[in-house]
Design a protein around this nucleic acid. Structure first.
Lengths: 127, 127
DNA sequence: TTCGAATATATCGACTCCGGATATATCTAT
DNA sequence: ATAGATATATCCGGAGTCGATATATTCGAA
């Protein structure tokens, strides 16, 4: 049908960047991404958690569970969050992804011209 | 294993851009992409032809066969090329992909800072 | 003139990934 | 109460990836 979104590597870059900035838990990553992209980039649960899991098992990020209890009362389990931080290996991966991203940017710029806010209509092709 | 490439939408943008620039046949698209990206972006047959086919059946590009004969001699079939040009619909799609690309660029810039040639080490996070 | 490399298009298929739907449980505000 | 947000996680049908493979023509070098 041609028209999804699907950019796993892009997501990897963006998630690693966010986590490099400061440790966060999954849901916060998802929300923050929504905010910073002004709603243009969405990271749904079905993509987010498998990605985090994979990043962790690849040693690129490291997760720690934290219990968040609302009231002081003793026993029952409270809500849990899993905080992730980027490892050194993860930073390296992030740099790689960033380099790839910049290379692609350069290619796009070479093809359609650098981003000039207004559309100054490029020439029509004839043949 | 984490580390492929796979970016169909990116390829779509890049192929549509090339064809918007001037009509080309598949092999030429592939070669030109290699050149302009300095070898960083490769579009192999297994990706190229299915993509072109899909773009055509979606009405984004339009292909025409052209026979290329080496010598003047009459009969035998010569080598054939299929030239593609972008349709109006294809241009629209290209603009959409471009907009998405620019949105993602903006997000990355917001996350890691705009592209400053040299790496001016960003601050470490603590927690 | 012959033989390998480049040109040119195309399909196959095993593998991977995507992402909407779904499930579960806690917390907050009305 | 209870609806909606928070928070994590899996499932699985459908889609995409890309190396390998197939076929045929043309060019250049030995």
């Amino acid at each position: 049908m041609l028209g999804r979104s699907g950019q796993r590597d892009d997501m990897e870059l963006v998630v690693l960047s966010l986590l490099a900035e400061s440790p966060r838990y999954g849901y916060a990553v998802s929300k923050e991404l929504g905010v910073r992209s002004e709603g243009r980039v969405r990271l749904t649960p079905g993509v987010l958690y498998p990605l985090l899991k994979e990043l962790e098992s690849a040693g690129l990020i490291q997760g720690t569970w934290e219990e968040v209890r609302a009231d002081e009362e003793g026993d029952g389990e409270g809500r849990k969050r899993k905080w992730y931080r980027v490892t050194a290996k993860g930073r390296k991966r992030m740099e790689q992804r960033l380099a790839a991203h910049r290379a692609f940017r350069a290619l796009v710029d070479a093809l359609v011209g650098p981003d000039t806010g207004a559309d100054a209509g490029r020439g029509e092709a004839s043949r």
